[in-house]
């Protein structure tokens, strides 16, 4: 019998604690597949966030550091500066990356730190039970925006790819989604390209993945998947925002 689909070797056998339909599972798999394909599991250090992915150290088979909330890019900087030949990536949610860790995010990008940042945008604080995130859409109801986010009193959503692409430091910035097979394939290509930029050019790369949080959106997995396409993508357009090396995929 021929195996045509299996769990990436860079992902452990532990059962994910993620909810059904959660984008984290897809994102983990993509990173795992890329680690396998590039053969880098043995030379990679992952820095994982505070958020629903806090226990990703049990899922990634590479070495892992668990960072304080928002500090993953600083921790990754410390690792990469000591181990420039190793592959270092941070994996962060939107509260982690775009609220409490905004300064760390921007300055790691400004320095063009040779790391890869995988950014999970699910427009909500998942782990703490569904509060407003910096990426929560205008009008979106959350625990702390019970009448819908009012941008005039609660601020406008941060568009991280757009913000970071104004900077000179980053080499590659792309936003992808995890709602359809085609989008997931594109996301895989982007993640692989991001790691390749780091490995071949020592460059900073950033991939935003639009993900569903069915539990805190109060939706079924199917409804949540549909919302990624119907509400998130129109506000957070997919595409490459910056690419200064133009390495061809698969190299």
């Amino acid at each position: 019998m021929k195996v045509i689909y299996e769990k990436p070797k860079s992902i452990s056998d532990k059962t994910f604690h993620y909810c059904p339909g959660c984008g984290h599972g897809i994102a983990h798999r993509l990173v795992g597949e890329v680690m396998d394909e590039l053969g880098i599991e043995d030379k990679t250090v992952a820095v994982v966030p505070v958020g629903c992915a806090v226990m990703a150290y049990d899922y990634f088979e590479c070495d892992v550091m668990e960072a304080a909330h928002g500090r993953a890019p600083a921790v990754a900087t410390g690792v990469k500066r000591c181990l420039p030949d190793k592959v270092v990536f941070s994996y962060q949610g939107d509260g982690d990356l775009a609220a409490i860790g905004t300064a760390e995010t921007i300055h790691a990008a400004a320095r063009g730190e040779g790391i890869t940042v995988i950014f999970i945008n699910n427009t909500i604080y998942g782990m703490t039970g569904g509060q407003m995130a910096p990426t929560t859409l205008p009008g979106q109801v959350t625990q702390t925006s019970p009448f819908g986010r009012d941008p005039y009193t609660q601020g406008w959503p941060l568009k991280m790819c757009e913000m970071l692409s104004t900077m000179t430091g980053p080499a590659y910035i792309e936003r992808c989604a995890t709602d359809t097979p085609a989008h997931i394939r594109a996301a895989k290509k982007a993640v692989k390209k991001a790691f390749t930029y780091q490995i071949e050019r020592g460059a900073y790369s950033f991939v935003e993945l639009l993900c569903a949080c069915p539990t805190n959106w109060g939706m079924t997995p199917g409804e949540a998947r549909d919302r990624v396409g119907s509400e998130m993508i129109p506000y957070y357009p997919l595409g490459i925002f910056r690419d200064i090396c133009d390495i061809k995929e698969g190299k």
């Binding site: 550091m65 960072a67 410390g78 690792v79 500066r81």
Partner: peptide, 9 residues
Amino acid sequence: NMVYGAAGA
């Protein structure tokens, strides 16, 4: 936090 990363490595 950079110290955390470097020390952890």
